[in-house]
Amino acid sequence: MTHTALPRLESAGIDSWMVRLFETIEENNLLWLSALTHDCEVAFGEALVDLVPSYTTLLVTFDPLRISSWEARKRLADVLHNLVPDDAGGEGELHEIATWYDTSVGPDLERVARLSDMSVESVIKTHSFQEYRVFALGFSPGFAFMGLLDESLTCPRMNTPRQKVPAGSVAIAGQQTAAYPAVTPGGWNLIGRTAARLFDRNREGFSLLKVGDRVRFVSVDRQTFESEGGDPAPAEPAKEETGS
């Protein structure tokens, strides 16, 4: 089917509109999504319930008892008509995430190295070299999807997810990287662990990372990791084929 041009407003129930700005994942999307998020807060005020930004879209949920779907659509059309990219705020806050890269807490490091045809040291260097952007939060509270990973590191999600990924695990899958805020099941490849508290109910704003933020992983040794409160308990090995 041929869709109308972007941006597009799509029905997402009696209380929500999906604002689709882009088709593909690009860093520059964030400048527009940041501006759109801000302008929606202003345009909807008290009638706003939730805004969920993601790679290419913003889901806008409003109170259908305060404004109708049509009124909401009209406000969104106005916002889109006047939208300019947020060149300043769109830059996002920079976080350095101290990470202990080790095969005990990152039991997939060696497989990633093998699949990427490089040494474990090069995997660590490549992963910690680059600055990443937070494209979306989801999966669990404070779980930030970051990218884009250097193409040489691209490694698929595991076929058999782990039942328990330890909190703080730093992981990669496809062209993305993330750190698990809490113990959850998970299918990403574990390459290290951070002591950073990624989600804290007592912190202002709760989540360390927000959409649009910039992140750099900094390699630290075990001692530093533990002195920052990190738990060095080894992670469960993968059930994947080792390829050997």
């Binding site: 129930g13 999906m18 949920t61 979306a136 989801g138």
Partner: peptide, 15 residues
């Protein structure tokens, strides 16, 4: 569906 999977996006109640 002619679309297999999409770039992840927000999901509203009842989707």
């Amino acid at each position: 569906c002619r679309i297999g999977s999409m770039v992840s996006e927000g999901i509203s109640l009842g989707a």
